[in-house]
Each structure stands twice: as C-alpha cells, then as structure tokens.
Design a protein around this nucleic acid. Structure first.
Length: 482
RNA sequence: GUCCCCAUCGUCUAGCCGGCCCAGGACGCGGCCCUUUCAAGGCUGAAACACGGGUUCGAAUCCCGUUGGGGACGCCA
C-alpha cells in the first residue's frame, strides 16, 4: 500500500509571515496538492516569551491571502490535534519520560549561566562549544538535587555517522562526534524546538519534512531522536534560503519582507506566489504559471540547491503581468479602498455605477504594475481637485498650444455625439487641417485633463469623464497665467 | 574555532548520468518597430559557465583542491 503524503508548515508565531516562510509554506502546499496528500499547519509556540496570538492571526491571514489552505491545523482541526505546541505539553513530557526510563536521555542540572560561561570559554579557546556530558552520570535519578531545576538531555553516542538522504541536496553526512547531548526538555518543562518537532512529526505522521536550508544542522539531531525512539525517519528536503541584494540573509533593511506588506502595496497574491515559486524552482522556460499548472508541474526534485536573491523589480513586473488580466469586477473591488485613499470621495464612488468603474479600471490596467499605482494614476478621471505637474504644464502648454485648445472647445461642443470615436476623428481632422501631428493636439489636452504628461489614450478618457467635466478641466489651464 | 551547504549573464534560471552550448529563456539595461503620451506588444543588442589541477578523443557538465558566499554551533525556532 502507498501511504498518503503528509507535510506540514510549522511557523513560530513571533512576528509576521515573511517571504521566506511563505515560500516554504508554498512548496509544502504544492507538494501536498501535487501528491494528493495532506497539508498541515502547526504553530510552534513553545517560546512563550516571544510567541503572540496576534502573530498567529497574521500568519493565518497571510496564508489565506496567498491561497494556501491547510487540511489540518488551527481553526480547521484534524485527527492529530491540537495543532499548537503549547497545547501539547503533556505529550512531550510523556515521551521525555520514556526516553529517560530507557536510558536514552538524562537529567542535566547545569544552569544556563554555567553553560553560557563554558560556551564562551570554549569559543575563546578556539574549540568547539559542545556540552561536555558532565551530567550523564545522573541518568534519570533526580535525588539529591534539591529544588534545583533539571533539564533533560539526549544521550548521544560518540561513534559513527548520520546520513541525511536529502531530496534536494543528496546525501549529507555528519559525524556523531561533532554533535553533543542537546536539551529535549527545559527545566521549566517546556520542550525545545528539536524535540517538539520530532514528537509532533511522529504523532502527525509527517512523511516529508520540507523546510529551509538553515535547518540542515538540526536534522542529524532529530534523526538521532527518531533512532532513540525506534521510529522510522521521514524524508527530508532542505530548500535553499532567500537572500537580500547583498547576499546576506533577507531582512527588513532589504525592503519589505512581510507577505501582507505586499498586499498593502497593491500586489496580487497569485503574482507573489508565482514569483516565490520561481525562486529556486523552474519548469523549462515558463515564467508565468496558473495555480493549476503549479500543482501539476511542481516537484521537489526540480528545486535547486542555490540560494536565491529576492528581486523586487522582477516581482513588480510579474505583478504587472497579472494585473493586465484581472477581471474588471475583482479589480474594481480591490480599487475602491485605494481610490478612496488616493483622494476620491466616498460619495463619488457611491454615485458612479459599477460599469463606469470597470471601464476606468480597464483603461488603466494595462499600464499599472501595482493596484495602488493603478488607483493613483486613474484618480484624475474622477471629479475633484487634481494635482498638476508644473514643469510639464510649462513645457507642453505653450501659448500656441493654449490657443489651439481654445479653438477646439467650441468644435467639440458642436459634436453631435460625444464619444471616443467622434472625438478622435475630430482631432485627426483638425490636426491635418493645421498641418500638425495628432500628438500636437492630444498632448496639451492630456495635460489639461490629467495634469500629467502620461495617461491612457485621452479620447476614451474624455468619454468617461463626460464633456462637462472634461471642459472644466481644460478651462482650468486656459485660465492660468502664461 | 568546529561542522554543514552552495558556486552559469547584475538578478531568477535552463543545461549538469560529458559532445546537440563559441551556453538558452526571463527581469533589468540599450536600440529599432508600433504608436495621441506612457505602458503593453514585436524585433534586436550588450551581458555568465569563480579559479587551478586532473579524468577523457572531448567538460559548464565527472573527481580533487583553492577562493568566495551562506548557514549552524542557545534551557530561540
């Protein structure tokens, strides 16, 4: 029988979900969906000092925004729950007890201060800061310790080696002699990361552990735990990290790293997903993938070994590609709050009908790279005060240009119908009659209407604005001095 | 200091069980076309196998070393 693939994403709720974590989640999710397996979300909140509920909320929200739904985990439950480690403490303690009784682990009464001092001394002496095993003799016997707290350490034999059969890196070998007796349970009874992970992965029947490269050095310790408990080891896949432009670990100083920050900046979740998946994975020459295509083509074997530099410029390009194809109703829904933020009054947004808003969105969507940018560039089509670029006005609105604008107004007024088509043919005729290019008439008009030198084609814009509003705008610049 | 990982254009990458590669695609950058501006689109240009040794008739592709980068060495995760 072929057992079902079960993978997990296990963030610690000590902050927002950053793009590195998001990609790890994405790879796990894609692997699960591709294999028809189960994607589990587990919250690793054993660090009570730093874990917060707000952080849990943000992480769930980020995953949902990206479209990464989990089959088991917080809010959806599942047979292997609870899915927050803080609610699983007795499980860890039971397993630690068993390891203690089997002689696989022992109590350690060294204090954190003592350990820190020894670690520093070792580093200063240029030797490896490993725990020296001085409490091994104590075994599971806590007598004579008094009120002093005791941590539990795994007993690690010194001989032999451990090999990780890594799905992306191939075999990776560690010598046991380089590893030390690490802590399983802290003196306050809380499990450490390495211990909780293994217990949970066992209890949740995880078949594939897909996580960042930075966990490679934890893996041999975790394998030793599986061995100590006599349990089968899952498959491991360590995916390369995401770096900043200077090739160091990606952090805030490299720009936005929070997934939700990209939502706020007007990025589409499918663009972010598409960008992240290509950081370390590829499928021939294809750059743009639908979610279905990703699920169909994704494979862990095709994940590269090289760390990738996060490139916001390419993300922006991809977002632009996606924006071009967003359906008008969805785009308009995204735009409403952003238009408002850009200064369009609530009242006007309410008065305009949906079809009109769609037409505005469609006119601008081809040339916007973010939804936010789309909102601000299309703002002038609405009624109300607009920003005028002084330098542009000075350059484009010469006295001849203004004279031409003035001459055109009554002709437009006389048009039987006020549409993009009739406007365009009028402008073309006038340009030809004057021995000018269309641009010579259109550009002053554009500046008059929008205040800027760039915009979508002005004729459909004028149709959308309506003659009254358009004329008011143009008269505004005609009345100015100069 | 010890251990581990990685190494193709500025960036993401294809190729990597050897010849099809004087290395392909994408972003960005330059040019041209299209064009009412700007985008978009089309065409096009510059741009890389880190270095040194092997193995081989033949290496980006295999092996070793060097260098460079990254990660880990917590009663953090």
């Amino acid at each position: 029988m072929v057992s079902t693939v079960r993978v997990r994403f296990a963030p610690s709720p000590t902050g927002y979900l950053h793009v590195g974590g998001a990609r790890t989640a994405l790879y796990n999710w894609l692997f699960a969906r591709h294999e028809n397996g189960v994607f589990i979300l587990r919250i690793e909140d054993t660090d009570v000092e730093r874990s917060t509920d707000e952080s849990v909320t943000t992480i769930l929200e980020s995953l949902r925004w990206l479209g990464l739904d989990w089959d088991e985990g917080p809010e959806v439950g599942g047979p292997a729950g609870p899915y927050r480690q803080a609610e699983r403490l007795t499980l860890y303690q039971e397993h630690a007890r068993k390891l203690l009784d089997d002689g696989k682990a022992y109590y350690c009464t060294c204090t954190p201060e003592e350990l820190e001092a020894r670690r520093k001394a070792a580093l200063a002496a240029g030797t490896s800061p490993r725990y020296d095993g001085r409490c091994r003799k104590r075994g599971n016997d806590l007598s004579g310790v008094g009120g002093r707290g005791a941590a539990v350490r795994l007993l690690v034999r010194d001989e032999g080696s451990i090999e990780i059969a890594d799905l992306v890196h191939g075999p990776i070998r560690f010598e046991r002699a380089d590893l030390d007796d690490f802590i399983l349970l802290r003196s306050d009874g809380m499990p450490t990361y390495n211990f909780a992970v293994v217990i949970d992965d066992v209890l949740m029947d995880i078949t594939h552990v897909i996580r960042g490269d930075d966990h490679i050095s934890n893996t041999p310790r975790q394998i030793m735990l599986y061995e100590a408990m006599g349990l089968p080891v899952p498959h491991f896949a360590h995916i390369p990290m995401i770096l900043g432009s200077d090739r160091s670990r990606l952090s805030k100083r490299h720009g936005a790293t929070s997934v939700l920050a990209y939502q706020q900046m007007g990025y589409l979740p499918e663009a972010v997903v598409n960008y992240l998946v290509r950081l370390g994975w590829s499928h021939g020459d294809q750059e743009i993938f639908s979610q279905e295509e990703l699920v169909k083509h994704f494979s862990i074997e095709k994940v590269g070994k090289t760390p990738a530099v996060f490139d916001p410029v390419k993300l922006e390009w991809l977002n632009g590609q996606y924006i071009k194809h967003v359906a008008p109703d969805r785009l308009t829904a995204l735009l409403r709050p952003l238009w408002e933020a850009a200064g369009v009054s609530q009242q006007e947004l309410f008065q305009r009908d949906e079809a009109w808003l769609h037409r505005v969105a469609c006119l601008f969507q081809e040339r916007a790279r973010t939804v936010t940018e789309l909102a601000s560039s299309s703002r002038f089509v609405f009624d109300g005060k607009i920003e005028r670029d002084k330098a542009v006005a000075l350059k484009v609105l010469s006295s001849e240009a203004k004279a031409r604008l003035r001459a055109l107004l009554p002709e437009i007024e006389a048009l039987p119908t006020f549409t993009a088509a009739t406007l365009e043919s009028l402008f073309r005729m006038r340009a030809e009659a004057l021995g000018l290019k269309l641009v010579d008439l259109a550009q002053p008009f554009r500046v008059g209407l929008s205040g800027k030198s760039v915009s979508p084609p002005i004729f459909p814009i004028m149709e959308l604005m309506g003659w009254e509003a358009a004329r008011r705008r143009v008269e505004e610049v005609l009345e100015e001095e100069g």
